[in-house]
Amino acid sequence: MRATLQISAAALTLVGALALGQMLPRVFGDRLPQTAGTSLLDQVLGEARMMISDGMILKADEYYHGGMRVTDCTRAEAHAASSLDLPGSASAHVHEDEDEARPESPPRDLWNWVNTRIHVAEHRHMDGDQAKELIPWYWAAVRLEPRNVQAYLLCASVINHDLGNPSEAIRILEEGIRNNPAVAELEIDAGCIQLNRLRNTRAAQACFESAYAKWAQDRDAHGHADGDLKMRILFYLCHLARQRDDTPALDRYFAEAQALGIRSGSFTAIQKMAEH
């Protein structure tokens, strides 16, 4: 009798708990301290997703440098100049932060002597087909945080430049665009690949026009926007307008470029195209 009572009470309590669990979010959903995220990862990791995702990009960068973080390198190496230290963009470059990152006077003791001989103290760059080793980290970065635009850009860049697969790069950028519909950079990179690698000027035009529209939306939404980004978009639009001998469009883009008031390399190139 007592056992039956206990089991009945336990069962009733369980049913009550389940009912409350179902009812509370519906009734007081807006007043509960936490609301459910869109996915399990969101709920578990929250904003840490972006940090971990960025960590994976750093991991890919380590792989590109032979497992080394550039800041850990104790011996600076001279490389040919390149402005970006991104895999896929160039195979040789200078790490400007190397000298700053190194300690002023590294400890000169027995332990340090052993450490410098045991551990790798220099870096090297991946080239060609080896870059496939980076892909899993970029893949994981975007799976973990689909809003990580940088991961999409870098992944597409590696696949396009180093692995020579522009179609796959476009597919990745399209995935990025679906997940980040307001970001113009993804459209620009997709347009570049369409234009330079796939020679598809119509698709490239569509990409740059879409990028232009997104840039305008961003400006309208925030009251200001990245001028350099617009200059890049205008550069490609001018290039395409010149290819199809569309002088009115060329003049219009040039006028917009002038209005930005930025005298960069892209502006000079636009100016040259407009004068011709």
Binding site: K132, E133, I135, P136, C155, I159, N165, E168, I172
Partner: peptide, 13 residues
């Protein structure tokens, strides 16, 4: 077993 973006061969990770 995962082949990210259909690109195989990466094994360092």
């Amino acid at each position: 077993a995962i082949k990210p973006y259909g690109i195989g061969g990466g094994s360092r990770h």
